[in-house]
């Protein structure tokens, strides 16, 4: 029963993602109709060819597709991590960065931009952001832990405090940023600018295996919704499971943030919407949220590129996401417990 339902949702969302991706790859200074996009993509298969002009083929394969793919993986990663964090904290306001991942990444990224340090292949920025993200998350965890236990409320508050502190560090760096300020601000807004297949592979290599690793823990996530004591009493090793979930979700988020900056709202809103649609069971919620997150970010990125001047995609996700979320809040029952 649940297999059929899950399968149905996954097929539907995958189709939606494919459709959104096809349209999105056609959006930009050179508009390319979806049919042509499709024929170029399918020409990669043996035995199929395309009659699209060579310039269009180059634009699609070298510029647009890496970007669409990056949007998809980043959205996938953020929504999956957000789902895990909301379940973990039993808190509707939890997002993937709740333990300071994004703030840590921001410090790392801004530090690199301001100091002008660089590594080969442009890896300096993502590497610094990734490292900053993990340091922040681990720091929050250590601060909130005492005697082998990590109370959820303490973790939440420690996360807020550390985010505030790191926010101050970033602001300070920006004040002294000089010429780097424009790049830094752009990064902080969340962007998919300068997407390459290399970045796609980087995020996918981290996020996809880790999300697959989460799937066997979806039943434990369900049990955690019962509360710590109940989860323990039905046989979940609460402390160990939580440690693992927190670590995995943080690394997934860190990978996404490292290449795409702080793209807000995807990890907060997508799990909520999917919970309204498919219910709270993580066995179906986690994979569907991940796919829906991918489709949402690809669509948001298409909007960001549609205007005369490209917008950072973070602006679009927040501008679309926030009103939509408010609408849900007023008209549907978003679980707030």
């Amino acid at each position: 029963m649940y297999v059929v339902r899950t399968g149905g949702w996954l097929v539907g969302l995958a189709a939606l993602l494919a459709a959104v991706a096809t349209v999105s790859a056609g959006v930009g200074p050179v508009a390319i109709p979806p049919r042509e996009v499709l024929s170029v993509v399918l020409s990669a298969l043996p035995g199929l060819s395309t009659d699209a002009p060579g310039a269009h083929q180059t634009i699609i394969l070298r510029v647009r597709l890496p970007r669409v793919a990056l949007a998809a993986v980043v959205g996938f990663a953020l929504a999956a991590a957000g789902t895990v964090m909301q379940g973990f904290f039993r808190n509707p306001m939890a997002d993937p960065s709740i333990v300071g991942v994004s703030s840590g990444a921001a410090v790392g990224a801004v530090a690199v931009i301001v100091t002008g340090v660089s590594l080969p292949f442009g890896l300096g920025l993502p590497a610094a952001a990734f490292a900053g993200a993990l340091c922040a998350a681990f720091g929050v965890y250590v601060i909130a832990s005492e005697g082998g236990r990590t109370p959820v409320a303490t973790l939440l508050l420690a996360g807020v405090a550390v985010q505030t502190l790191l926010g101050a560090v970033v602001s300070f760096a920006l004040v002294h940023a000089g010429r780097g300020i424009r790049e830094a601000v752009f990064w902080l807004m969340g962007h998919l600018h300068g997407s390459t297949w290399g970045k796609v592979h980087l995020v996918a290599a981290v996020a996809v295996p880790l999300i697959l690793l989460l799937l066997p823990f979806t039943r434990d996530l369900n049990a955690l919704l019962l509360g710590e004591a109940d989860a323990q009493s039905v046989g979940v090793d609460v402390e160990r499971t939580r440690k693992l979930l927190l670590a995995v979700a943080s690394v997934i988020t860190a990978a996404a943030v490292a290449v795409a900056g702080v793209i807000g709202f995807v990890g907060l809103i997508v799990p909520h919407v999917m919970r309204l649609l498919v219910g709270p069971d993580h066995r179906i919620l986690l994979p569907t949220s991940a796919l829906a997150g991918a489709a949402f970010l690809v669509a948001a990125d298409a909007v960001a590129r549609a205007g005369a001047a490209e917008l950072p995609v973070g602006i679009v996700t927040a501008a679309v996401g926030a009103p939509f979320f408010l609408y849900l809040l007023r008209n549907r029952e978003v679980p707030t417990a």
């Binding site: 039993r90 369900n222 919704l225 019962l226 509360g227 004591a229 109940d230 009493s233 039905v234 219910g279 709270p280 069971d281 679980p335 417990a337």
Partner: peptide, 14 residues
């Protein structure tokens, strides 16, 4: 051992 807690925490729509 199975436990029935005093305060049910069933907030989610299972």
């Amino acid at each position: 051992v199975a436990s029935v807690p005093q305060e049910p925490s069933l907030d989610f729509e299972f």
